[in-house]
Design a protein around this nucleic acid. Structure first.
Lengths: 137, 137
DNA sequence: TAAACTCTGCAACCCGGTTGCATCAACTTT
DNA sequence: AAAGTTGATGCAACCGGGTTGCAGAGTTTA
């Protein structure tokens, strides 16, 4: 049993059940964000609802964050350890129009926006669409 | 018959049928972006498919642009007359977490992003979520 | 051990979006 | 004007992601 996985769950106050360990394992192995339907396919036999609720639990506890890249299904990716999902933690996401993968551009923070008067900012979703370095050969 | 409406359609090379005139009329009256289900409700008797295809035609011809604000239904808003929906035409959108309305912040262009090497940019979707000036009383 | 609680799995549902197909309207061609 | 062509419209049905209700399995607590 991977101790690292359990520590991550513990760190976010998530009870480490077998399902959750497996799901976190899969998420850790991903290089790009993964959707619920994609996650389903990673398992031979796993219930959609359980995976759905697992992802929700992970998101509520800020172990992962969700990305709506406009492809029709929300994708999920691991948060960095210190992440609290506040506006200052947010980064840009990149959707490749060729391979359909969505990547966290962790090094690119979401630019600050000067909103009109009396507009309060809570969060920002910024998705850049284009061709990724893998597909631009 | 509103001549203005017909000119707009003509300007974008869209044949001015009765349905299209009506839909454009509704879109023109909106202060915020409108979704397909919302548009359906604006009409007593109108088929979802027709409205759907009308919006698609409008979008293809750059009369309107679509906004995925993460609420589950795509919203649409009029483009400005000279808009060609190129990256430099893009502006920020604002979703109010209280009233659920989505506004075009036409005066706020999407900030330029320096992508990693070999990443090509096509377009950007930037949605700021918060509380709008109407709800912040 | 019994009670309380949480997690899991199945079934069913909701809803936005989309497609196929038949019909209708408008515009061409002869 | 009749026939033919094209595109727009309307209906029905479908698809797929997301979500909820509920019962049963597993875990924790007293």
């Amino acid at each position: 049993m991977n101790e690292q996985i359990n520590n991550q769950l513990k760190h976010r106050n998530i009870k480490p059940t077998a399902m959750r360990q497996l799901v976190l394992q899969v998420l850790t192995e991903q290089k790009s964000a993964i959707s619920l339907p994609e996650l389903e396919n990673k398992f031979e036999k796993a219930d959609k609802t359980t995976l759905y609720r697992t992802l929700k639990t992970f998101e509520e506890n800020k172990l992962i964050h969700s990305i709506d890249d406009g492809t029709g299904s929300v994708k999920y990716a691991l948060c960095r350890e210190a992440c609290e999902c506040h506006p200052e933690d947010l980064h840009v996401h990149f959707l490749c129009a060729v391979c359909g993968q969505t990547y966290c551009l962790n090094d690119i923070p979401v630019p600050t926006i000067n909103l009109p008067a009396k507009f309060q900012l809570e969060s920002v979703n910024m998705v850049v669409k284009g061709v990724c370095s893998n597909c631009d050969k």
